[in-house]
Design a protein around this nucleic acid. Structure first.
Lengths: 338, 338
DNA sequence: TTGTAGGCGTTATCAA
DNA sequence: TTGATAACGCCTACAA
């Protein structure tokens, strides 16, 4: 059994009060006493029991993140970068990160959120992959639970979030493709419930409009943000009677999947057909050919989300208004004819 | 403020005892009472506070894993697969997984382990990347703290671990390379402190011996289990006066890094120089050319480690003796001349 | 079948 | 500057 604060106090012939205060750095304890306490505490290997402290202080010093997928997708570069950012900054702020996994909008997801909030598992939550109608926001606001989100919902909440201007990003991408001479530009979508889909699709529409191109709904396909989804959607697009000359994937993984379909069809990406994604994950540098993408600084955003959340948890003032970040168009060979 | 068990009891005009027992499924509570309790508990959104329960039961229902790296390396396929396995099986066993990160053998690592053990953060720990002299094992054994390990240490402990026969795996790989006509087979090592390095290197030596090949120490290079380390080590090997005709990476990432060096030198992997790794991560299927490797079932091992650990935590009997798994040699084009 | 009461290990209030 | 004591919310002998 590890020693408790009682054991330390007994050894020193002090009260547990004094030990506690000495260790927590209060200034109403004699310096000499403090040194003795710290010394023996270290010797005895005393570490305060987290559960007891949590119970008393009503704080867990933990931040929660529930991955909106059905399986742990740590190998998905988006999530791995996002979580690395969350974890790093959480540590900076003296918090730990608790991670779980739940499929979006299903019973299990609701259960997990309820358990964490009502069971006081964490002091605050990070949300991502926001849905247009997002029950998580409703729930957390109704319980007054601290959270920050990567992306926004459609409702008229004004929850704190950090957003990326996906509309503008894709719009610029379309401009670039048009400049390259493309007229038949396909778009592989994400599930329609997601805000990122709405934003980026609006950018697609706006880009077409800017170029006076009509919307051809046969050039729309639905993916699921995974490589496989992109692959299947691209296969479908490429077997059209009049296939597209350019394909936009709603994210990089989708585009990478589409790239595979392009290869399998014996087409040369870049020269014969353009392909581009969104996110700016590292993999896009190493594909054949390297992939044009719209880069958003996921790691840095994750860290900002934590910093913002910690302020909320501590009840500090937070500057009003959401933060909107402009993504950066990165042009590579996958959209260049030569 | 979320409701406590008191609130529920008050609402029902019952004692908190009865509420607690009804919710925990004891059979000494009237069925009708139980139903009423469950009903109102749900209505009120009551969830037991974890900290209180933990304090009382002296259990956290959490399992800890401290990644032995200086940064979160979720994108490293080895870790992502390992953690996915840990997380999935932990959930099955009604545990949560707490993850942190610390650089091996440094002060911060020691601190983290001590905090988790003495602060009773978790009920048990998973170790990986075992060192030959591993203070973690000494520490956990001396405190009688439950843990299971992926790999073994050199010392004469008999802690519970699951091992993979790396020696035999590499030995077979060497045989295969010799069959392909190679005489100058290089080996890119991991840090010497790691048990996996010792095992696999022994396999290398044994393989050479089987073929009556001498050990040429100029064909040994040191990596750090990363792509970059493998890349740098391979560059060095390839600029030797008498370069190797085959290179073994101590793990797949090392081999993938080496593959890049091979490409940069204008060599054809497979045809002109053989290259192979160890682990069997998915990436090896998608390299150019696909990479020969020695596959170990990381995901399944992770799950077994959790199952074993849960038994230890519950004080159940555990079959004596470590578990040794035979890896599987997977031959692909990177070691085939045609 | 239900209720009373004690304590898990801390921190915080108040008195000495 | 230090100490006694009361919670924090829950589980669990033990009593009723």
């Amino acid at each position: 059994m590890p020693p408790t604060i009682r054991d330390v106090a007994k050894r020193l012939n002090l009260s547990i009060t004094t030990v506690s205060r000495a260790l927590d750095g209060y200034d109403d304890v004699a310096e000499e006493t403090r040194q003795r306490v710290i010394q023996t505490a270290r010797e005895m290997g005393y570490v305060p029991t987290r559960a007891a402290r949590q119970l008393r202080k009503k704080r867990t010093d933990m931040i929660g993140y529930i991955m909106p997928t059905s399986q742990p997708r740590f190998s998905d570069p988006f999530f791995s970068e996002f979580i690395a950012g969350l974890g790093d900054e959480a540590l900076n702020q003296h918090f730990e990160l608790l991670i779980s996994v739940a499929p979006p909008d299903e019973e299990a997801e609701i259960k997990t959120y309820q358990n964490w909030v009502f069971g006081r598992r964490v002091d605050g939550l990070i949300l991502s992959r926001m849905r247009q109608q997002d029950w998580r926001v409703d729930f957390l606001e109704s319980t007054q639970f601290p959270f920050t989100a990567f992306g926004r919902t459609n409702s008229n909440h004004h929850h704190p979030y950090i957003g990326v201007d996906g509309k503008n990003g894709i719009r610029q991408l379309v401009h670039h493709l048009v400049e390259q001479g493309h007229q038949r530009i396909a778009f592989i979508c994400a599930p329609q419930t997601l805000t990122l889909q709405k934003d980026r699709f609006e950018g697609y529409l706006a880009g077409l409009k800017d170029a006076n191109l009509p919307l051809d709904t046969s050039l729309l396909a639905e993916g699921d943000l995974t490589r496989k989804g992109g692959y299947l959607a691209a296969l479908q697009l490429l077997s059209l009677p009049q296939p597209p000359t350019a394909i936009i994937g709603v994210n990089d993984l989708t585009a990478i999947g589409a790239l595979r379909a392009i290869h399998e069809k014996g087409l040369q990406a870049g020269k014969q057909i353009a392909i581009a994604g969104f996110d700016g994950i590292e993999d896009t540098e190493h594909t054949h050919p390297p992939l044009t993408t719209v880069r958003q600084p996921v790691y840095e955003i994750a860290r900002q989300l934590i910093r913002l959340l910690v302020k909320l948890i501590n009840g500090e003032e937070v500057e009003e208004g959401p933060i909107l970040i402009q993504p950066e168009l990165i042009i590579r060979n996958s959209t260049l004819r030569e």
